[in-house]
Simulated assay, not measured.
Amino acid sequence: MSGDTPQPADDGVSDTKDSRESTEATSEKRTTGTLGADLVVRLNDDPVLGFCVYAARPFCRGERLFEERTALEATHDAHKEGVRNVYERYCQLSADRRRALHGSFPYLAWANGVDAQEAASARTLVGSLAKGLVIDNRLTAADHMQMRPDGGRPVEDGPGALGKLGGSSSPKMAAKAKTALFGLLKRPAVSQDVTSPELDAEKRARAETLDWFSRYAFRLKPEASFVKPGGNHQAAVYLLTDLINHRCGGFQNCRVSADVGTISVLALRDIAAGEEVTINYAKDVKDFQCKGDCCLRKQAKEGR
């Protein structure tokens, strides 16, 4: 280090201006995307909002941003005593399909005991079921870890650990888990005197997977279900569409349109490059709390 004394700026104005311009340039770079990209996927500035999707180029009103195939569909009755078979459907998926889900949903990976690093490596598969779409995927492994309840810590391998049927478990462990699951399906309740580490882990994985699906799944119209015609309890999740954040009615800039095996996201108005893509979840206010600026501004005015 030299002995020269640092000289103060003339008036501080240029430093402030440079700092502001640098901040604005960084913010623009985070959202506008690389040349040729359609959308940018990244972690929201407020982690409470999780992953989010930004327009990397302008979209016109009525334009389809993308169409995406279903990642997982299951029967999910409105009443808890009805059929809710998402855990079974998840377990029946191929390893590649489960891995893609883990890349979009860190919570699901955690719920099923998938190694944090393994799940984070699958983040590159976000949007892989969308047609003709160029995505600037900026999700890092650290972003993925941040959205896990365990913060990315190694999964405990022993009694009390989450079931690893959907992760990197051994064949022996997977066989025990399937046996426990079969027994669980055969009777409505498990006797209090019948317990094992595998059964406890499977029950927990089932409950957490159901909770995840309840929060993320889109309800399908009767005519858009794979199962028997007229069934109105089918719901589905999507690798990219589910990452789009909610805005209340009148504040969203897109809408979704579900069909058999696919979903489309359509622009309700012109969308500028760098603008966040938003939709209305149409969820009951009793089960959903909006975290968007549309409600934050309202709460601030009401002094909450």
Rank of each mutant, 00 (worst) to 15 (best):
Q252N: 15
Q192S: 12
D15T: 10
V194G: 02
S169V: 11
C290H: 02
E223N: 12
G303A: 06
T278S: 12
G127D: 03
G274W: 13
V285N: 11
S14L: 13
N280M: 08
R187E: 09
V256F: 04
D211P: 00
V134L: 06
D287E: 11
E198F: 15
P171S: 09
C248F: 07
S104K: 02
G36R: 09
E202K: 02
G183C: 06
A267V: 11
R57Y: 01
G167L: 08
V114P: 09
P8W: 02
N245I: 01
T34E: 08
G36Y: 04
T278L: 13
R138K: 13
E223W: 04
T23D: 10
F105P: 00
E63V: 10
A207R: 08
A267H: 12
E68M: 09
K172R: 14
E88K: 06
R89G: 07
K221L: 11
F59P: 00
D46P: 01
A174N: 08
R99K: 12
G33E: 04
Q117Y: 07
R42S: 12
R215L: 12
Y87H: 08
V13R: 14
E67Q: 13
K228I: 06
G151K: 13
Y281N: 05
V53Q: 09
R269F: 04
T262V: 14
F288S: 14
G160N: 13
D287Q: 11
Y107F: 10
T195G: 00
D193F: 13
N245Y: 02
R269A: 03
P197E: 02
G292R: 05
G231T: 04
G62V: 06
Q146D: 10
A201Y: 12
K298M: 15
L72M: 14
T75F: 00
D284T: 05
G250M: 10
T262D: 05
M145T: 00
A74D: 06
V256A: 07
D96T: 04
G158H: 11
S264I: 13
C52V: 05
A224Y: 10
K29L: 03
E208N: 13
V83M: 12
V155N: 05
D15N: 11
G113I: 03
D287K: 12
P8H: 07
F288P: 01
A56S: 12
H79E: 14
H144S: 08
R89C: 13
F59A: 03
G163Q: 06
G231K: 09
A119T: 03
K29G: 01
F59Q: 00
S191C: 06
A9H: 04
P197Y: 03
K283D: 07
K178A: 11
C52H: 03
A141E: 07
